[in-house]
Amino acid sequence: MIYLILILFLLVLIIGSAIYAVVQRDLLYAVIATGVISLVLTAVFYILQAPDVALTEAAIGVALTTIIFIITIRNTVRYESDNDKKNKIKKL
């Protein structure tokens, strides 16, 4: 029973982090959320009996992908601009 609760918690964490990463307008927080997705995916791969894939995901998904996203944000802009309203006004 405790095993089931653990697995369902991991799966809900994946979905929640994915939705947070898409909705959040601060791109740095969104990138950290994608890192959390990769970290939880590592545990799920281990439960599904794929230790090789879990090691690869831990090394590449958590560390390297997050760091190159952060370097890109450092070189460009941090906030996604909220220009839905502006576009509507332009069209009107």
């Binding site: 994915a18 969104a30 996203f69 996604e80």
Partner: peptide, 25 residues
């Protein structure tokens, strides 16, 4: 659900970094 959430980000978001985040999801 992960595939659908990523596809939603690719289809509706305007920021390029958000689109790449959607692709990685």
């Amino acid at each position: 659900l992960m595939i659908l959430i990523g596809l939603y980000a690719v289809l509706t978001k305007r920021s390029l970094i958000k689109i790449v985040i959607g692709l990685s999801i």
